[in-house]
Design a binder for these strands. Structure first.
Length: 815
RNA sequence: GCCAGUGUGGUGAAAUGGUAGACACGCCGGAUUCAAAAUCCGGUGGCGAAAGUCGUGGCGGUUCGAGUCCGCCCACUGGUACCA
């Protein structure tokens, strides 16, 4: 057969679509598999990362279909987001037009790869129906107290009058105009992910072995659970009156209560309540106040890289155990949103406190000493050791002391054991146009009121001015004006839109129904299809998207929508596609256009290369001539089908009557099948499976028995179909009337051999190879092995002989 | 700094404690061709004429046997970053 990918691929893609070959069945009595590759952002054109992502997913989907599963393999578009708005600012094109045109282009490009997606379930998250369902959930969350509004500090560009994401702050300035950004305190909506910290951490355990260890660890660290002691630092009477008797104390959290006798100062975040109080009541001299205000203006991100600095507040607290006066400072390294925004500082045993104390000449008092050797000088000692000068706890090792001191605090009501999470509530407000509006209304009489659910979606106005200055929804002449759903008086809509991570946090649930389904979910369908059996995507989503999607699933469960605890059963994180050792990117000019590749060689070549070049979780180095090699294999595969008989069934072959080459060919074919079963089922190293098929092809080519060729193609076109579907459908239809797609059975007879080839090694070093009969006794094998390595063992004593059946003989010699 | 991952031929990579380098790419040689492309056949870890010998980042260990398991170290890549 002459291999003409362009015509074969166009033909099959048309047929698959026309026959709805890849629409899942509504028969929920069948076993199912839900295979999902992370959906794309419609940026314009597909890139090689997409090709890899969707090829891997498609391979799973097609494999499971052959195994008789009802397969859900959907695609959609993560279509809200900043790039659409940036395009509007730059080129004056409406975000909606830009987005949907990109979707049309990319849909065509993906179709050209022969991906077996359900067409009836495709949607874009910017579709109004999707927004309506989502706003419904958000209202439920608001009513349940899972969504709340509070003031928070944000990056603000005073020139463009807009909030900027951290990624949009370049060298401390606005990415568009370069104006230095400031920290502005604004009202923001937050989702209470912190309510779920414990569960999000706990249920990571149920994913062990099914998600990459690396991802589990990253999420664990991100959630960041730590155990410690929380206690109040009481102000001394002088300080208390200085503050106008408004405050008696402030709380601090420490994971090192064992170092408490080494406390030499306390430090507050620049945003701490007490600091603000002192600022607003003029309790600080100008220089101190200015220094604090300067610290407040620095973004959290920049603070992380700035040198430590601070100022003394001129007030003192009392050490909870010794009663000594401890000075209170403001320090730029104390985070306002972790713990209570205040810390006890132990310079002798904490690197940060040490650096700060050294800079400002604060006392450094060591209370933990190494069990052996000297206390190091010039740095903090943070290792384990023995307590000294620590009152009744002196002499204890610090691990024991930690527990004892916490117990002491609790017994004497000085403080309590506490757990802190690093995970913070999720700020979802964006002062942007191209997103889903937050469906809340501000009423002077009723406060914040959710929109009437029957009126959803709160849709975006189309007539907007997008020039990058401020929030287009805020500036729209009429959009925000509405009536209060509760009291009917004039009110104002919330003009913030939601973070686009909200849309990607539940899209996989919506795929369980067809697009025309009028509610968000159909319980029966949802319970049947969930969970996603195989979720495939880039490692870059290891934290945010995967954490948010897990959180949303749990929230929707608690709101009664979903039964799952965890949405994704197995996770496969694909490696990046590199060229010349670097990630493909437009700015580096090292991209390869998938469209051009498909046009030159066809989709099957692209798919084959991308799965053959490396295992899916590893980085993949692009190689033009290896692509050429994949194409050559396909040509051979098509060409050698000429040796195959047209048939509807597997030929019967009398194995014992075959020649050595014929037997070898059958063996290779069935080895490839075994490998395929293993690879599709568990290992997912498609490269080794393809290598097995290539070996089988090489072996088939060493013989000319038509039945052996026919059997070989019957099996190989079946196991290769998930990878190179177009050519396999063509061959299978022409040769086997399509009858060979399905479960293949391994014929053990082909693995029976008369003679075995064993390696002979001496002290573990390979020296010779011998042929022995299958039924040869151990003793006989050892004798044959000895004979084969005579010159190595001459005059030596054989201490031990080990026979590993079918593999090797190891002789241990001495002398 | 912390966490994770990766180190094997000229290159991408195989090897599920048991004959290291399967399968490809590249290169070399040959056939075919007026010639080239395509195709087909053969060779290809280093050193050595050969017998051999050395080889999986380094050093140690466990084992009859280690690329694989354990310990320490080095290099590179990615993530995260003052989390008290």
């Amino acid at each position: 057969m002459n291999y003409t990918p362009a015509s074969i691929e166009a033909k099959w893609q048309k047929t698959w679509s026309a026959t709805k070959a890849y629409e899942p069945s509504d028969d929920f009595s069948k076993p199912k598999k839900y295979v999902l590759s992370m959906f794309p952002y419609p940026s314009g054109r597909i890139h090689m990362g997409h090709v890899r992502n969707y090829t891997i997913g498609d391979t799973f989907a097609r494999y499971y279909r052959q195994q008789g599963f009802n397969v859900l393999h959907p695609i959609g578009w993560d279509s809200f987001g900043m790039p659409a708005e940036n395009a509007a600012i730059k080129h004056g094109v409406h975000p909606k037009k830009w987005t949907y045109e990109n979707i049309a282009t990319m849909r065509g490009e993906l179709a050209g790869l022969g991906l077996s997606f359900s067409e009836e379930r495709e949607f874009a998250t910017s579709n109004p129906e999707y927004t309506a369902f989502e706003q419904g959930f958000i209202i439920d969350m608001f009513n349940k107290g899972l969504l709340y509004r509070k003031q928070g500090f944000l990056n603000w560009c005073p020139h463009d009058l807009t909030v900027l994401a951290n990624e949009q702050v370049v060298d401390g300035g606005c990415w568009r105009c370069g104006t230095p950004i400031v920290q502005k305190e604004m009202y923001q909506y937050y989702l209470k992910i912190s309510d779920y910290s414990e569960e999000l951490l706990e249920s990571l355990k149920t994913l062990e072995g099914k998600w990459p260890k690396q991802v589990l660890t990253m999420q664990e660290n991100w959630i960041g659970k730590s155990y410690g002691l929380e206690f109040p630092f009481k102000l001394d009477s002088e300080s208390e009156s200085k503050l106008g008797a408004v405050y008696q104390s402030f709380d601090v959290f420490t994971t090192r209560p064992d170092t408490i006798y080494g406390v030499s100062y306390a430090a507050l975040a620049p945003e701490h309540e007490i600091v603000r109080h002192m600022l607003s009541f003029g309790l600080l001299d100008d220089a101190t106040a200015d220094a604090i205000k300067a610290m407040q203006r620095v973004s959290a991100r920049d603070r992380a890289t700035s040198p430590k600095e601070g100022v003394s507040l001129g007030i003192n607290v009392l050490h909870p155990l010794t009663g000594a006066k401890v000075p209170v400072w403001v320090a730029n390294f104390v985070l306002t949103d972790y713990g209570s925004g205040a810390v006890m500082a132990v310079p002798a045993h904490d690197d940060r406190d040490y650096e700060f104390a050294t800079k400002y000449n604060l006392p450094i008092k060591a209370v933990i000493f190494p069990t052996e050797g000297e206390l190091p000088s010039g740095c903090a000692y943070t290792e384990i050791g023995t307590l000294r000068e620590s009152g009744e706890f002196s002499g204890l090792d610090n691990v024991t002391a930690k527990a004892s001191i916490m117990d002491y605090f609790e017994a004497n009501k000085l403080g309590k054991k506490a757990i802190n999470f690093r995970l913070k509530d999720w700020g979802i407000s964006r002062q942007r146009y191209w997103g889903a509006p937050i469906p809340l209304i501000h009423c002077d009489s009723c406060g914040i009121v959710p929109e009437d659910k029957a009126k959803l979606p709160v849709a975006l106005p189309e007539d907007v001015v997008i020039n990058g200055e401020g929030n287009p929804l805020e500036h729209h002449p009429t959009w925000k004006h509405c009536m209060c759903p509760k009291c009917g008086k004039p009110a104002t809509r919330e003009t913030d839109t939601m973070d686009t991570f909200i849309q990607s946090s539940w899209y996989f649930l919506r795929y369980t129904v067809k697009n025309d389904f009028k509610e968000a979910f159909d319980k029966e369908a949802l319970n049947y299809w969930m969970n996603v059996d195989h979720y495939i995507g880039g490692i870059e989503h290891a934290i945010l998207h995967l954490l948010y999607a897990r959180f949303f699933t749990k929230m929707l469960r608690d709101l009664g929508y979903v039964n799952s605890d965890e949405p994704f059963e197995h996770l496969l994180t694909q490696g990046m596609v590199l060229k010349d050792g670097a990630k493909m990117s437009k700015s580096k000019g090292n991209t390869v256009d998938p469209g051009a590749l498909v046009e030159k060689y066809g989709a099957d070549t692209a798919r084959l290369f991308i799965l053959f070049a490396a295992p899916p979780t590893q980085e993949l180095e692009w190689n033009d001539s290896a692509v050429e090699g994949a194409f050559r294999f396909l040509k051979r595969f098509a060409d050698r089908s000429q040796y195959v008989n047209v048939t509807d069934s597997l030929p019967n072959i009398d194995h014992s009557s075959l020649s050595k080459e014929e037997k070898a060919a059958r063996k290779k074919v069935y080895e490839a099948l075994k490998r395929a079963q293993e690879v599709y089922g568990e290992r997912h190293t498609f490269n080794t499976m393809i290598a097995g098929v290539m070996e089988a092809m090489n072996a088939l080519n060493e013989q000319n028995n038509t039945d052996v060729w026919t059997e070989g193609y019957w099996i190989l076109t079946s196991i290769m179909e998930p990878i190179i579907p177009h050519l396999c459908w063509e061959l299978s239809t022409n040769l086997f009337n399509g009858k060979n797609f399905g479960v293949q059975t391994v014929r053990e007879e082909v693995f029976e051999v008369e003679a075995l080839s064993l390696g002979v090694s001496i002290n573990g070093k390979n020296r010779a190879t011998i042929e022995v009969g299958v039924n040869e006794s151990q003793e006989a094998i050892i004798e044959i092995a000895k004979a084969s390595v005579e010159k190595w063992i001459e005059g030596k004593e054989i201490v031990k002989s080990i026979v590993i059946p079918g593999k090797l003989v190891n002789l241990v010699i001495k002398g």
